[in-house]
């Protein structure tokens, strides 16, 4: 499990990093925390000629909180998020979801940009980005483009990123006051990739009905996804136990997981329903008498 032969370079500016990636025409690979790429190299599932270490590029490790939302630099680590007490108020869903990422060692190294670029379908960060309608900033030789999170992932471990582009930051829209939310995921062991995970939030209008509900799932398809049928069901209604069960049933039908060695597809499909019930019950402070 030694790395294949490769060269290594650590550019000091973003422009330099982009230029190096562009010059190598797809044979170079950016590396930051290395938590996804290093195992791929060790298993020789990836064999780039050159590793471009972007870990020390300046200006990419900020957590900016403003009226425009929460802006995370690509080099922000899970530990940075965990330690930033402001996020508990500025974006509690993000803080709660990131608390599920892996273990100490990985949390100290793994980065927001790396997770987005790797696009594991069970990873929390891409799931939160999609659930929250985040905007991802991508920089390449031709400049900067903003990619809506729901257009970023193309499939399993595949994104719109070109070989010479880097994620520089991701912006989550501002978190409204009194927003109701919850996050649940189910993993075999603490810190493992989720077999299924559900994030949901909504606002409440003066009539007590739900406005602008967002529901996202991870781990049950080739990419994280929004459950728009569920969001449509919830919009404008007030939450009760019956509606929760209805939402869970729709959610089960809306996902299309596959079998793998950890779980059969039917299990993951059912977990989406179970977790959505629990998420909505928690968000709405509703006691569900679970049939069991």
């Amino acid at each position: 499990m030694k790395l294949p032969p490769l060269d290594y370079i650590r550019p000091v500016t973003l422009a330099e990093a982009i230029a190096i990636l562009a010059a190598h025409g797809g044979d170079a690979k950016a590396i930051a925390g290395g938590q996804s790429l290093m195992p791929l190299l060790a298993f020789r599932l990836a064999a780039p000629e050159l590793l471009v270490d972007i870990g020390r590029l300046p200006g990419l490790r900020h957590i900016d909180i403003s009226v425009e939302g929460v802006d995370l630099g690509a080099l922000v680590t899970w530990r940075d998020i965990e330690r930033d007490a402001r996020l508990t108020y500025a974006h509690p869903l993000l803080a709660a979801a990131i608390a599920h990422v892996a273990h100490y060692q990985i949390r100290n190294r793994g980065t927001v940009g790396g997770s987005l670029a790797h696009a594991d379908p069970a990873a929390e960060m891409p799931g939160i980005a999609i659930t929250c309608d985040a905007l991802i900033t991508v920089v390449g030789p031709n400049g900067t483009r903003m990619v809506p999170a729901n257009e970023f992932c193309l499939g399993g471990l595949s994104t719109v990123l070109e070989f010479d582009e880097l994620v520089t930051n991701v912006r989550l829209p501002p978190w409204k006051q009194n927003r109701r939310w919850a996050f649940e995921e189910f993993a075999r062991r603490r810190g493992d990739f989720a077999l299924a995970g559900v994030a949901a939030f909504y606002d409440i209008d003066q009539n007590g009905t739900m406005r602008d509900p967002h529901v996202g799932v991870i781990g049950v398809g080739d990419r994280p996804m929004r459950l728009s049928v569920v969001e449509n069901l919830l919009e404008g209604k007030s939450l009760d136990a019956g509606l929760i069960l209805q939402a869970a049933a729709l959610a089960r039908d809306a996902v299309d997981p596959t079998d793998d060695i950890h779980a059969e597809a039917a299990y993951r499909r059912d977990m989406v329903g179970v977790l959505l019930e629990r998420v909505l019950a928690r968000a709405g402070n509703i006691v569900l008498m679970e049939a069991a």
Binding site: P39, R189, R190, G191, H262
Partner: peptide
């Protein structure tokens, strides 16, 4: 609960790494 060497019908071992061969960790 965890340890399981999984083979497919071609007798390929499907989980020859600790990413997929699960063992108890200190917190379990």
């Amino acid at each position: 609960f965890f340890d399981h060497l999984v083979y497919d019908e071609e007798a390929q071992l499907l989980n020859a790494s600790l990413a997929d061969y699960l063992v108890p960790t200190a917190s379990d």
